[in-house]
């Protein structure tokens, strides 16, 4: 098991920047979900951690060691792909054996590992089948099994449930949560489904257009969104937003709309000024896009 940290990680494809200086600390054993709309750079970030994409700037550390220049195989990670990436011509057992081949274990050790994982995921009856003879959910479990036999320090998941139907998704989601409890391995999990994020994560990282908008526990991002984007992105139905005007009253500043009036938050006290004839709206607070460390 290992901690992972990204500091000011940048990714550019040619001149086109898609990840703009991401800072993220993941503790040992933590389940972190990268959440955001399509095209925000989640997969790209994950692939940089995996070593499948070069890092254009910044540093990625796993277990305290900088791994920017290490090949994927030396990063002690395992990845579960969205379309499972199973070897189509190999049986389930052969898929796992091939994943273990570089570790040069004895036949008995390999068999023991496969038996352990197969038992945990209920794959025993499927070991002799090929991927084409499995249902989507079974393939998904095989993909997880293939990642698990290698006993990595960090699991990377890229939208592992998006090809499953709703019911199965709920079920596998619960299995993943259970496995994480059992194994205690660090997990980085990419999704654009906020139900998955809310139910699985210890920590949610909300991304948009290559920037991190907020990092926090599910409760935090749900109840205390840091900005308008997070506020509207999280929750279904999403949070209500009102355009309010700040006004003076005898009891201090109040926020008022056509329908109702409430007292302004205490920390606004003394900060509201009127400029004669000017705009008195308090601008929505927005964090600078790339907070320094």
């Amino acid at each position: 098991m290992a901690s992972v940290s990204l500091s000011n990680v940048v990714k550019a494809f040619g001149a086109f920047k898609v990840v703009h200086g991401v800072d993220l600390d993941i503790a040992d054993g933590e389940f972190v979900v990268l959440l955001g709309p399509s095209g925000c750079g989640k997969t790209t970030t994950l692939r940089m951690v995996a070593g499948l994409e070069d890092v254009s700037g910044g540093e990625i550390c796993i277990a305290g060691e900088a791994i920017n220049d290490r090949p994927p195989k030396d990063r002690k990670i395992a990845m579960v792909f969205q379309n499972y990436a199973l070897y189509p011509h190999m049986t389930v057992r052969q898929n796992m054996e091939f994943a273990l081949k570089p570790q040069k274990l004895s036949k008995a050790e390999v068999d023991a590992k496969i038996a352990g994982v197969a038992g945990m995921l209920g794959l025993d009856a499927l070991l002799q089948r090929k991927p084409a003879q499995l249902s989507g959910g079974q393939r998904q479990r095989v993909a997880m099994g293939r990642a698990m036999v290698r006993t990595p320090e960090v699991f990377l998941f890229d939208e592992p449930l998006s090809n499953l139907d709703l019911k199965l998704r709920t079920q596998v989601r619960m299995e993943i949560a259970k496995l994480h409890k059992q194994l205690g391995t660090t997990v980085i999990y990419v999704t654009h489904d906020q139900v998955e994020a809310m139910t699985l994560a210890d920590k949610i990282v909300i991304m948009k257009d290559g920037y991190i908008e907020q990092i926090g526990s599910p409760e935090e991002v749900f109840a205390h969104p840091k900005n308008l984007f997070v506020a509207t992105f999280i929750g279904s139905p999403s949070m209500n937003l009102f355009r309010m005007t700040v006004e003076r009253s005898e009891k201090g500043p109040v926020l008022s709309s056509a329908a109702f009036t409430i007292a302004a938050p205490a920390d606004m006290n003394g900060k509201v000024h009127t400029r004669p004839g000017g705009d008195t709206r308090h601008p929505p607070q927005r964090r600078p896009p790339c907070p320094g460390r």
Binding site: K73, F81, Y87, K101
Partner: peptide, 27 residues
């Protein structure tokens, strides 16, 4: 051939010759 199995092999650390013999050639 789909590229993902090759990325999986890259992460697992299978050698190039193994990937050719056991992944590419059979397909």
């Amino acid at each position: 051939l789909s590229p993902e199995p090759y990325e999986a092999a890259l992460i697992d650390g299978n050698s190039r010759i193994d990937v050719f013999l056991y992944v590419t050639l059979p397909q």
